[in-house]
């Protein structure tokens, strides 16, 4: 840790994964997605990834499962599913700083 305990990396909360808070997981049918970006604009956690003007998979490391993306989606292609339905083989772990 730097002297004085200052934080030197901007936006380093990227190292703190909040995905483990989730009880519901948004599952997006990207085939039906019209890439309107409304889910991107509303997501409080900036968990909707966008690449080359296209909405791609949700970043499950940070998505807290609030369901607002599913709420706003005009074509209703996001479905909220219980997290327990998924076999979590990838555990979200936070590094110690």
């Amino acid at each position: 840790m730097p002297i004085g305990g200052i934080i030197i990396e901007p936006g380093n909360s990227k190292n703190y994964k909040t995905g483990s808070w989730r009880t519901f997981r948004p599952i997006t049918d990207l085939k039906r997605c019209i890439h309107c970006m409304q889910c991107w604009v509303i997501c409080p956690d900036d968990a909707i990834a966008v690449k080359n003007n296209k909405r791609i998979e949700t970043d499950l490391d940070f998505c807290k499962g609030c369901g607002l993306c599913a709420e706003i989606c005009p074509v209703k292609c996001i479905e909220m599913k219980k997290e327990s339905e998924f076999n979590c083989n990838k555990k979200i772990k936070n590094k110690k700083m």
Binding site: G11, N12, S13, K14, N15, Y16, K17, T18, W21, R22, H35, C36, M37, Q38, W40, V41, P44, D45, D46, A47, V50, N53, D59, D61, F62, K64, G65, C66, G67, L68
Partner: peptide, 24 residues
């Protein structure tokens, strides 16, 4: 929105506001 989404967000993920928080 497509144009806006090209910009890098000025606040990064990993903050501890509640799920669905209006303030965030």
């Amino acid at each position: 929105l497509k144009e806006l989404a090209k910009q890098e967000s000025k606040i990064s993920s990993g903050h501890r506001m509640c799920p669905g928080c209006g303030a965030a």
